[in-house]
Design a binder for these strands. Sequence first.
DNA 1: CCTATTTCATAACGGTCGATATGGTTTACC
DNA 2: GGTAAACCATATCGACCGTTATGAAATAGG
Lengths: 208, 208
Amino acid sequence: MYNNIPMPRKPGRPLSFDRQAALQQAMLTFWQHGYETTSISDLTAAMGVTAPSIYAAFGDKRRLFLEAMRLYAGSPDDLQQSLDQAATARDAVSEMLTLAAHAFTGETTPRGCLLASATASGSTDSRDVQKAVADIRRDIMERLKGRIDRDIAIGVLPETASATNLAAMVVAMIQGMSVLARDGLERQSVLKIASCALEGWPVSQTEG
Amino acid sequence: MYNNIPMPRKPGRPLSFDRQAALQQAMLTFWQHGYETTSISDLTAAMGVTAPSIYAAFGDKRRLFLEAMRLYAGSPDDLQQSLDQAATARDAVSEMLTLAAHAFTGETTPRGCLLASATASGSTDSRDVQKAVADIRRDIMERLKGRIDRDIAIGVLPETASATNLAAMVVAMIQGMSVLARDGLERQSVLKIASCALEGWPVSQTEG
DNA sequence: CCTATTTCATAACGGTCGATATGGTTTACC
DNA sequence: GGTAAACCATATCGACCGTTATGAAATAGG
């Protein structure tokens, strides 16, 4: 996902700011205020970089957001690995929900989920950005579905279980937790929502 | 909630547009594009009313949104009545989830939930609007909690059940369904999410 | 008809939006 | 040192933002 190979120093004046650190600040700003409701002026203030430098380094606001979103979402491979390493799909989901509850109520980060907040609303001409965010959710949902399907296949989950529905439910739950976290719900309450949601997780009859 | 007493016609030029119909259109526009990401220009186009008339009739953008939001959310009394008339809290929740799933995937209305979309993101100076939306959610959550508590009190739900957690879970679920509905998930899938979420609903031991 | 009152359409306000042109400054390479 | 390349800060672009001043048009009461 990342390209850490140090480029042979190009000619010309070197970059006067840490590109990755600036991107991190941009990510936090979008996380806080959303895509369209974050202005370039907001970004220059948060990143400590003037507007022309932002445009030179990241292209435009849209591409800066997409890059910040990818930084926020993390590598899809990492998610896949986490799903694969979990003992059961239920464990994987439990970990996801717990992680989300913590991330959405962090003391040093904005409340809620960047994916849930940033493009929940938006004008017509930001549809491609909304679609990019939706694509992240779809990817998460499909990998989750795959993990659940595996458990169904080996009998850990009953055949009556629907991987598609369960995966969609989990993603919806996470995005819903983001809303309440933004409303100010404390971490413990959000965690309880997560465990509440897991109560309905299907159990194989051989175990129940 | 509404004041249908016909006012004795005031002097001066009469209003040339249907205030309620214009408000309805404003509501749909905010529903589609969100609060800050809907411009006055968007509203004049949708409502068929010029800007000065909007300001004369509704105050400003903020107050127009709040009024549109109240129109969207409906009367709190109606919700309370619906909760009271349901045979059980589970029935009430099931109805709420089903209603939401339908509302979020309507053919003639924007996708998702106005409350979930309109202020999910926003700049700092729209915090009072965000709070107004959060207050609606909190009101729904508390009435829901009250209904669940009643079922716990009369033994329909086990004493181990937490009305607070269940109510929060339901609201989170609804807001999460909004996100996936916005992403384009079809109605049937959103309905399945709703029924999935109900699977975990607690059952009194005397029944189970 | 006349006046008071309210709404109407047009045009414009200052401010901010996303994005850039300009020209000086710092580096690498020869 | 000279040249080319990249980045910097300043100033500014046209477009749109939410909002309102202005004056004509429409109605009610006298």
